[in-house]
Amino acid sequence: MKFGVGTSIKNAEIVAAAGFDYLEIFAAGNLALSIPEETWRENLRRIKGAPLPVLAMAAILPATVQLVGDGVDMAANVSYMERLLDRAAAAGIRKLVFGSNKSRTIPEGFDHAVAARQLEDYLLAIVGPAEDRGVQFVIEPLHAECTNTFTTIAASAAMVRKINRPGMALLVDFYHFHKTDHDVLSLCWNADLLRHSHVSGKSREIPGTVACDYVPFMRILRQAGYDHSMSIEATFPLTADNAKAAQETLQQAWTAAG
């Protein structure tokens, strides 16, 4: 089991010193296609020179890339992702988090069945290029205040099973799981699809900074044989002290869940 932190590459030393295994970064400001070539090359050098690997990337699509609705340009959307996959593979990133709530939100009044087909077609179009580059997408269920697609573990898992390719898997996020879904049975039934996870306090705090029992959540994963990666995704500033407390909190919870 690997524990990591979703944060800027500039915090790599703090994360490494706290005993974490890897970093998860965000496309914006790091590898996004809006970044000039020279800046992207400099970011790539920083990633490769970091004291621990960057294994995952989130926020992979800007809001300007719209996957559902009228006027969707599938060819352009697939081309965008293929170029992002090239950058991710060059940086050694192996998991891309398919969260991107604005890109996948169905516009008001648009046919949800048509939108579902658009999303499926898009995911089918990008899974092959991901596999060719040794990268895997993980679909992230987001609570219903964020988006109106893939808002439950069950719906997200159903899409993963339908695509049925090694390059498409499932993510569970502790915060979203408790926010609206909290479907323990769906998590248990679909834990075999999990290849990545996110963790925080129930209001997006850094673990260890507030009281929060992670053991029941982690027990479900452990009983399913989960042995992949778990990134902190929190909104609070990272410091040397809270990073160390977070690492100890997660390790202790994981051990207690065994």
Rank of each mutant, 00 (worst) to 15 (best):
D70Q: 14
I47L: 14
I60V: 12
G49D: 07
R41F: 11
S100D: 08
D111N: 12
A91D: 01
T39Q: 15
I35P: 14
N101S: 08
E108Y: 07
A76S: 13
K48Y: 06
P62K: 02
E42I: 04
V97P: 12
I93K: 01
R46Y: 11
A75K: 04
F110K: 05
S100P: 02
A90T: 03
Y22Q: 08
I25Q: 01
R104N: 05
I60W: 02
A76D: 09
E24T: 02
E37P: 02
T64K: 08
L84E: 04
L84W: 03
A116C: 05
Q66R: 15
N101G: 06
D86N: 14
A27G: 11
A63D: 11
A76Y: 10
G49L: 14
I47C: 02
E82Q: 07
E42V: 11
E82I: 03
N101W: 14
G109I: 09
R94Q: 10
V78C: 00
M81T: 01
K48W: 14
P36C: 11
L55S: 09
K95T: 13
E13H: 13
N101Q: 09
A58C: 15
S100F: 10
D73W: 13
I93P: 05
A32D: 14
S103E: 03
S100E: 09
I35H: 11
V68D: 01
W40G: 10
Y80F: 14
A56R: 03
G71C: 09
L33M: 11
A59W: 11
D21T: 07
M57Y: 04
I25A: 05
Q66C: 12
V78Q: 00
V114Q: 08
H112A: 07
A28Y: 08
A89K: 04
S103R: 04
M81G: 03
V72R: 01
S34C: 06
Q66P: 04
A91V: 05
F98R: 01
L52H: 06
L23Y: 07
N43T: 04
G92T: 00
I106L: 09
R87L: 01
R104Y: 12
A16V: 07
G71N: 01
A91I: 07
D70I: 05
L31H: 02
P107A: 04
F26D: 02
E24C: 12
E13T: 13
G29T: 04
V72P: 15
I14V: 12
E24L: 01
H112Y: 15
Q66T: 12
D111A: 07
A18T: 00
A90N: 09
P53A: 00
V114P: 00
T39D: 15
E24Q: 05
A59I: 06
I106G: 07
E37R: 15
A115E: 02
G71W: 00
R83Q: 13
D111C: 07
V114Y: 06
V65E: 01
I47N: 06
R87I: 03
F26K: 10
G69Q: 03
